[in-house]
C-alpha cells in the first residue's frame, strides 16, 4: 500500500557502484485549499532501485475534481512502481528509445489505474483528474515523462542547471492537460537527458512562477541551489525534510502562491574515487 509520501527501497540488492541518491520531498497544502477545507491535492512518491537508480513521481490533482487527491496519489504510485517492476524483471535499457518506452508504459499504467478507480467508484473519470511527472534518474542519464504542468530540472556536475520538461498550459494559466484528458498520453513530454546529474528536482505548478523564469521556462538558479545544498549537506533526512516543509509553508512562499506545492529533490552522493567526469 502506498501513501502520498510513501518511499523506500524497491529492492535490497547491493549497489553495483557506491553512488546513492539522497532525497527530500514534500507536498504542502496551499492556503486556498485550506480556506475551502479541501485536502492537499498534490502527491508524490519515490523509490530507489539498486541505490543508484532513483524513480520519482509528482502529481497535482485538479482542484475542480472531487477526487483529485485520489487520482494524484494513484497516478504517482502506479507510474513509479511500474518502472520499478520493469527494472526488477529485465535488464536496465542502455538506449534512450527503450527508456522512453518504459516511461510511456508507466504513463499508460497510471492512466489505467485511475480509470479503473473511477469505474470502481462509479464516478466520471474527470473527478480523478491529475497531472503526472515521472523521473528516473541514474548516474549517467535522466529519463522524464510529463503530462500537464510543473517541470523537472537537473543540475550537472559542472553546476549547469537546465529544464528537462516545460509546463504544459492551455490558453490560460489555469488550464492544463490532465492524465485523463483526450490525447494526453500521445501529447506527453517524454525524453532522456544524457549527462552526469548531481541534483534533480521536480515540482508541481504551485511553485512554477517561483522556480522558473517565465515565459521561457528557464530554471531560476537562486531558487534551486539552496535546496540542493541542503540535501547534499544535511545527511539526516528528517531534518532536511522538516526544513523544506517549513519553508514551503512559510509566509514568503504564501505571498506568491496559494496553491498546493510539491518539491522533490534528489542529490546523487557519488562514492569516493568515482566522483563523476566533471569534478576536479
Amino acid at each position: 500500500m502506498c501513501g502520498e509520501e510513501a518511499s523506500g527501497e524497491v529492492t535490497s540488492e547491493r549497489p553495483r557502484r557506491g553512488d546513492r541518491w539522497r532525497v527530500v520531498a514534500a507536498s504542502v497544502p496551499g492556503t486556498r485549499h485550506q480556506k475551502r477545507q479541501q485536502p492537499c491535492q498534490d502527491a508524490h512518491y519515490w523509490a530507489t532501485v539498486q541505490n543508484d537508480v532513483l524513480v520519482a513521481a509528482v502529481a497535482d490533482g485538479a482542484s475542480s475534481a472531487t477526487l483529485g487527491k485520489v487520482g494524484a496519489t494513484l497516478a504517482v504510485c502506479a507510474a513509479a512502481t511500474t518502472v520499478g517492476v520493469h527494472h526488477q524483471r529485465t535488464v536496465c535499457p542502455d538506449n534512450d528509445e527503450a527508456w522512453c518506452q518504459w516511461l510511456v508504459d508507466a504513463l499508460h499504467a497510471a492512466h489505467a489505474t485511475v480509470v479503473a478507480e473511477a469505474q470502481a467508484r462509479q464516478v466520471p473519470v474527470r473527478e480523478l483528474a491529475t497531472t503526472l511527472i515521472l523521473v528516473v534518474a541514474m548516474p549517467a542519464r535522466v529519463a522524464v515523462a510529463q503530462i500537464g504542468d510543473g517541470a523537472v530540472v537537473v543540475s550537472d556536475m559542472a553546476g549547469n542547471l537546465l529544464a528537462l520538461t516545460v509546463p504544459q498550459n492551455g490558453a490560460y494559466p489555469n488550464e492544463t492537460t490532465f492524465l485523463i484528458s483526450p490525447n494526453a498520453l500521445t501529447a506527453a513530454q517524454v525524453g532522456v537527458w544524457r549527462g552526469s546529474p548531481k541534483h534533480v528536482a521536480a515540482f508541481s505548478d504551485g511553485l512554477q512562477r517561483l522556480a522558473l523564469q517565465m515565459p521561457d521556462g528557464h530554471p531560476h538558479a537562486p531558487f534551486f541551489f539552496p535546496f540542493f545544498q541542503l540535501v547534499e549537506t544535511v545527511p539526516a533526512a528528517r531534518e532536511a525534510q522538516g526544513q523544506v516543509e517549513a519553508f514551503l509553508g512559510s509566509q514568503r512562499v504564501r505571498d506568491r502562491t496559494d496553491d498546493d506545492v510539491t518539491l522533490f529533490i534528489g542529490s546523487l552522493i557519488r562514492s569516493s574515487g568515482d566522483a563523476g567526469p566533471m569534478s576536479l
Binding site: 512562477r209 517561483l210 523564469q213 531560476h220 531558487f223 545544498q229 541542503l230 544535511v234 526544513q243
Partner: peptide, 15 residues
C-alpha cells in the same frame, strides 16, 4: 559545509 538556511538563501524568480 554548513547547511544553508532556506529562508535566507532561496530567491524567487521575478515573474
Amino acid at each position: 559545509a554548513v547547511a544553508p538556511k532556506l529562508e535566507e538563501t532561496v530567491e524567487f524568480a521575478e515573474n
